[in-house]
Design a binder for these strands. Structure first.
Lengths: 144, 144
DNA sequence: GGGCATAGTGATACCCAGTATCGCATGGCA
DNA sequence: TGCCATGCGATACTGGGTATCACTATGCCC
């Protein structure tokens, strides 16, 4: 096993650690989303696996979400998208033209959130930050 | 006109300025959401106005969204909610227990976002920040 | 390796938020 | 007062996600 060295070890192992079985549909879904670089929809995954039921795709994405392996984010119009979490805690950039998703980390953000927390009544349990951008690729296409 | 002094002038007037007619259903919807303090769903509005069609509720909410009179946000589970924008630019707190929505403003956030923008490829066109909280009321209920 | 309990599966029907369509109604201006 | 574009309600549809249910396959124990 070399998983100790990789930032994202065998995803199936993460689910097994949580008591879930390593079934063929789960392996297939994981294999596909491991290759996705830019966010994906449940439908996309389903389309690449005609043998796997729609319900199973959603069930598996839900497990991965709970395990923190993937995260769910909203495009500006509210359409949902998933993305592999490559680093522990991060936020997303979403291109408003092509929908591509990027990750960023900023320690300042976390510090700021804690600071804001002290000004707000109640307990802060989490936050979500999305940066809407026009990505470099889309800027180039538009310039042309 | 006293609109200059009030933070939220006659909402119907805002739509009329944008070329939309002041119809009875629109007035009714606006009258209801003006009284909502804590975020609301489209369904809620529809339920309070049995005479108004579902499509009209969504159409009107869309106009108000485009005019910046209300904003749309997502609960942790992705369920959508609307809230009246009382101040120009702001962010939301969402109680993960009861779903109530609050507003907050923090100049630091805006400065930070600009700072982060310079580290990110592409053009930043907007951002959305949601703080997930357990609100004071829910904390009290849980303590009891 | 074989048998078995149970977790997981696909099909299907359903739910909810939101949109498209379409013939009818109404606001606002002349 | 009449006209007609804008807006309306009803309805059917879409897309994302969940519940149900009879069947299947995983993984554990022998």
């Amino acid at each position: 096993m070399t998983t100790i060295l990789t930032p994202r070890p065998d995803i199936m192992a993460i689910l097994e650690d949580r008591g879930y079985r390593a079934t063929a549909p789960r392996r297939a879904i994981i294999r596909i989303l491991e290759r996705k670089q830019e966010g994906f929809t449940a439908e996309e995954i389903g389309n690449e696996l005609p043998g796997v039921g729609r319900a199973t795709v959603f069930r598996t994405l839900k497990l991965l979400l709970e395990a923190g392996v993937i995260c769910r984010l909203n495009l500006l119009d509210g359409a949902p998208k998933y993305s592999l979490s490559r680093v522990e805690h991060h936020h997303h950039t979403v291109c408003v033209r092509c929908g591509n998703v990027g990750e960023f980390r900023a320690a300042t953000v976390e510090r700021l959130m804690r600071a804001i927390g002290s000004d707000i009544p109640g307990d802060i349990v989490g936050h979500s930050i999305e940066l809407y951008v026009v990505c470099e690729r889309c800027l180039e296409t538009e310039a042309a």
